[in-house]
Every structure is written in structure tokens, then in C-alpha cells.
């Protein structure tokens, strides 16, 4: 399952981020969003816009394309 399959408000655990674009992956790691981290989709902007995610009390935004690359599980 990938992050885009998850419903808004549902908390999931990250399984794999190795397929995410290298620049974005570095940023995720910087924020301590790595394999094992719990994330929640807070908001999705329309017309295929970016996602607002929350992990460890930190809010951040990434694009749908990147969210698709993040493997998660319940």
C-alpha cells in the first residue's frame, strides 16, 4: 500500500521510502520521517495538489507524486 491509498486522518506507518526522489528523501530524513515513522494525512489540495502530512507533531507538504512512492502499512 502507498500513502495515496490512505484516507485522510488515518495514521499509518512508513515501510519504505527508497523510491522517493533523492532530494525529497533527504528532506524527509532530515525531519526524521523514515522507515517506521507514523504519519497522518491532514489535508489534500484539489486538482492533484500537494498533501499536508503530519509526523511527530511536525506538519509538512509534499506532492502527490512523492506520496505515491512512500510505502506504508497500518
Amino acid at each position: 500500500m502507498v500513502l495515496t491509498d490512505v484516507k485522510k486522518g488515518q495514521k499509518v506507518q512508513i515501510v519504505d521510502i527508497t523510491n522517493v526522489n533523492a532530494l525529497i528523501r533527504r528532506r524527509l530524513i532530515d525531519l526524521d520521517v523514515v522507515e517506521g515513522t507514523m504519519v497522518k494525512i491532514k489535508r489534500v489540495l484539489p486538482f492533484g495538489g500537494p498533501f499536508t502530512l503530519e509526523a511527530g507533531g511536525q506538519l509538512f507538504g509534499i506532492r502527490r507524486r512523492e506520496a505515491k512512492m512512500i510505502e506504508v502499512s497500518y
Binding site: N21, L23, I24, P50, L59, F60, G61, R63, E66
Partner: peptide, 11 residues
């Protein structure tokens, strides 16, 4: 070069 986006949303 593909376009990327990442932003922190401060409180």
C-alpha cells in the same frame, strides 16, 4: 530535471 516540492509548515 524533474520538479520537486517539499515544505515545512510551521505552527
Amino acid at each position: 530535471e524533474s520538479s520537486v516540492f517539499f515544505i515545512e509548515l510551521p505552527p
